[in-house]
Amino acid sequence: MWTNIFQRFIDRILTIGKPGQIYIIPTFDGIKLLALNGTLLVIGLVYANNFVLLFNFILFCLFLGSMYYTHFNLRGIEVISVRQSQLHVNETGSIKLALKSSSELGHFFVSCRPQKSLYAQLDHNFKFSIDKSTDAIEVDIPLLGIKRGIEKVETIVLETLFPFHLFRCFTLFKTPLQIVVYPERKNLNMHSFFPVPETSANQGDDFVLKNYQTGDSLKRVHWKKLAQSNRWYSKSIIAPTHTPVILSLDETKIELKDKGRQIEDQLSSICHDLYRLQSQQIDFGLMINGELITPAKTTNHLRFCLRVLASYEN
């Protein structure tokens, strides 16, 4: 019940509040303590017992003091960057959040609540503590991919209840973060691909020399080297440079029935092959919706291709 009210409260101030402001409200525990304070005050006054009154005032002052303490946990906090690690459907990833604080006393046990996401499951009660000694702190908030797609996350809520759990202090940050969930990696082999014809064939000696070992084929022995050095070497052929491959969505294989799922399957299959090609050091490109992405094999190229797959809509 309480979290619902809290959520509604956030929704409200999201529309009216300025980003970067720090809000502080008592928790349910805090309200209970306040009620105890009231009770003790009445008891103390009715029975004119000064011990009860004193005890009550100490509790009350600690209550108020913890309000400042909690507030100062978040004071001066800055979000330097928000990034998201590679995330596929049904795989785990993380949102990498870099924070910085200008307060020497540091911030403790901050928990982070990103918006609810359609595409990825977020740990909304993720807690972390910030070490005051470092300049910037990087935090990984775990994610679980649910659905392929790209989604903008507009706000991130940082909140803290430290130290006494009596106050909930939170602040909202506007972020440019996009949660990108790539298709699932499935070896279905449903897509089509075609190699790019190369302009010139590979020439030259595509082998390296290894010390001859018994069992190596005689055909592999480097006779020339044997004559030169009187030592046995065997040739070990390295595969010639692969011709780049362009993967594309096979429209012909898609039947009208259950179209959406088939497209997803094909995307998953392409996704799986992208990784395979990259690990084999083969240049790969994409042909999606008639647009060609020129082949390359760097990690960034892979990321770019995956992003295209994630944002595919027909």
């Binding site: 330097i80 960057s81 990034r83 300049d135």
Partner: peptide, 14 residues
């Protein structure tokens, strides 16, 4: 070091 750190923290940079 701050330059290096910032390059690592932001998504726009490698």
């Amino acid at each position: 070091r701050r330059l290096l750190e910032n390059s690592r923290l932001h998504e726009n940079f490698l």
